[in-house]
Design a protein around this nucleic acid. Structure first.
Length: 498
RNA sequence: GCCUCCAUCGUCUAGGGGACUAGGACGCAGCCCUUUCAAGGCUAAAACGGGAGUUCGAAUCUCCCUGGAGGCACCA
């Protein structure tokens, strides 16, 4: 967009009503990217005007999630900024002032209808198959009379006075002009009877006062987008640029992600909540890469992006307005890619908590040694434990039947181990180089396949049928322990055949 | 029901009138490499929802249909 030559002020404005999900994370990411790219500001604003839906701790979780993803903001509830407060519940007076301005300008009016009456009207309209809009009872009450009634303590709300005729056109960066007939737009409530603004007023007042230049938000705002345009014009304010992001669909592609679906996904070991991904062994780099590409693309072949790449390459022109189904297997793929992109020491640091959580006390140097063996074969960090926990265990006892080599009996397998033992017992240096040739020669001498011999050895030494490469593993485990375990294997095998 | 948005392989997407026998990626299948598992390499199968129009020419532009999604609260 050509208008992005100027530093962009963008805001991520979640409501603290639950866990942050992938859709919000993507919105925040795009906000962040465009702010960084243009040298602008990324603002975190908390939209908590609905006290009933407020969830304790949600704001903290939100901030934690954003920081985990690497999306640091320069203005917000915790860091402050020149346009605060950044929590809408603390901006009540502001909304009241601007609502009054709208009323005095004739663009809004006080409404004294009770919720009960409104419900009844709505039901009647629905039974007559009419649009369920406010019937306009209070629309033409004079301001003087309204003020008298308010003075008298009557409960009231402020409604926007939507023009009954004509059309309104608003502009979305990706979808172009959107035009609706004004009569299809309701006289929305701007200020509730508790005096707090509703989203439609608060968002516009705040975006204007906070000098927001670009609004990135979900497609669920499209239907009320024209209303927002009308409110901007009623104030006589300049409108920011808007982009509406498509919704995320279920992995099946059929229907939007729902709470119920989220529960089912958890049973499948997947989640749409940002807070869960770290524990599941995903890298924030991979999550960022993945969600960036759900609804945006750079060209016809580039898929691996670091945050820095994204900052440089992101653009609203390439945002795709059509809905996208969540594809978790692709996240796994990206996670593997980013794991392989890490330095060994970085990866070691990230794997460590998973061993700790599994009850191990991993020695840092040992961890650093085994990390290279893991790096090529992991998709998620938690896999490290199942693949390599044996390095940290004193006692490794394989299942006897696993020790039996392919097409061999237990005694034959034990013979193989005894030969191997002889081969390596005399080695003074115990590393990959020293181990490989003698053991390959042994395979030759025994007239067996490499897979047979190394398979038996692998199970004896690691206790697992699937493990990191054998010679590397033996080098790390060391001569003494390797020999111990081979001897243990021999004993176990001899027991099978008695 | 009404309003709005969207529409290319199973999925994420490239494509903005001729460069398209429609490209990439995930997944899937096969092969290669190989001490297991991976990783890596190669190959294959797999899509322009339908119909009118505009044009010398349409995946690309217009309209209709169909399908999908979102919204219709003193929620955001």
């Amino acid at each position: 967009m050509s208008e992005l030559n100027q530093p962009a002020r963008v805001r991520f404005a979640p409501s603290p009503t639950g866990h942050m999900h992938l859709g919000s994370a993507r919105t925040a990411l795009y906000d962040y990217l465009i702010a960084r790219q243009t040298g602008g500001q990324f603002i975190l604003r908390i939209e908590d005007t609905d006290r009933k839906r407020f969830v304790e701790g949600a704001e903290e979780e939100l901030m934690k999630g954003l920081r985990w993803l690497g999306l640091e903001w320069e203005e917000g509830t915790d860091v402050g900024g020149p346009y605060g407060p950044y929590r809408q519940s603390e901006r009540k007076a502001l909304y009241a002032k601007y609502a009054r301005q709208l009323v005095e300008n004739g663009h809004a009016y006080y409404c004294f209808c009770t919720p009960e009456r409104l419900r009844k009207v709505r039901e009647e309209q629905q039974s007559r198959k009419e649009d369920a809009h406010y019937d306009g009872t209070c629309r033409d009450i004079s301001l003087a009379e309204a003020d008298r009634r308010i003075e008298a303590g009557e409960k009231h709300v402020v409604r926007f006075k939507t023009p009954r005729e004509g059309t309104t056109t608003v502009h979305d960066m990706r979808r172009g002009d959107i035009t609706v007939e004004n009569r299809k737009i309701d006289d929305y409530i701007l200020v509730k009877s508790d005096g707090l603004a509703l989203y439609h007023l608060a968002v516009i007042v705040d975006d204007h006062l906070m000098k927001v230049t670009h609004v990135v938000r979900g497609a669920e705002w499209l239907p009320t987008f024209p209303l927002h345009g009308m409110i901007y014009r009623a104030f006589g304010w300049q409108e920011p640029e808007f982009v509406h992001l498509s919704v995320f669909l279920k992995p099946s592609g059929k229907g939007k992600m729902s709470k119920r679906e989220a529960g089912q996904l958890m049973k499948d070991g997947r989640s749409i909540f940002v807070k869960d991904f770290e524990d599941m062994g995903y890298l924030p780099e991979a999550l960022v890469n993945w969600i960036a590409l759900m609804g945006w693309s750079y060209d016809d072949h580039t898929e691996f992006f670091s945050m820095q790449d994204l900052i440089e390459k992101f653009s609203f022109e390439k945002v795709n307005p059509s809905p996208a189904a969540i594809n978790f297997t692709k996240l796994d793929h990206f996670n593997g890619l980013h794991i392989r992109n890490l330095s060994v020491s970085d990866l070691a640091k990230r794997i460590k908590p998973f061993f700790v959580k599994a009850g191990y006390d991993p020695d840092d140097e040992l961890l650093l040694n085994i990390t290279p063996l893991l790096q090529e074969r992991m998709r998620t960090l938690d896999e490290a434990v199942e693949k390599a926990a044996f390095f940290f265990r004193e006692d490794v006892v394989p299942l006897p039947e696993d020790l039996v080599g392919k097409k061999l009996t237990a005694n034959e397998s034990a013979d193989v181990l005894e030969e191997a033992l002889k081969t390596i017992a005399g080695l003074t240096v115990f590393d990959v180089e020293a181990l490989e040739q003698p053991l390959r020669n042994l395979v030759e001498e025994l007239g067996l396949k490499a897979g047979q011999v190394f398979g038996i050895l692998r199970v004896a030494v690691t206790g697992q049928k699937v493990s990191p490469p054998l010679f590397e593993s033996m080098e790390i485990i060391g001569k003494e322990k390797s020999i111990e375990r081979i001897m243990q294997g021999i004993a176990l095998l001899r027991e099978i055949d008695g």
